[in-house]
Amino acid sequence: MDTTQLLKGVLEPSVLAVLDEEDGYGYEVVRRLRTKGLVDVGDASVYGTLRRLFQGGHLSSYVVPSDEGPNRKYYALNKSGRKELEASRKQWNEFSETLDGLLNGVGEDG
């Protein structure tokens, strides 16, 4: 199964979850996602997702000067983002339960 196809659907909640732990800037979010196991995640997708979430009003951003180079644009979850993350969590749990039942025979009639 092509994991990149799977990733598309879950990237948004994943980015929200990572930022819920701690605010972060673009490439740092990529690295954190990879550390947590999404090793195939691409910078373009994550950056695009960050932008979309920001445009959608789920994130706020602030700029932090860096001693190494250019300023860094940090993203943080706002109220709407936390709500979105909560909704995604619920949705995911239901969905994964369903798939678990489908693929592994786990679940109500398993």
């Binding site: 990237l11 691409g42 910078d43 373009a44 997708s45 994550v46 950056y47 695009g48 997702t49 932008r51 979309r52």
Partner: peptide, 15 residues
Amino acid sequence: IGPPHVYVDELAASI
């Protein structure tokens, strides 16, 4: 991050 055209395609899809 990969070559520009691939990157930009991925980005456009993601946005």
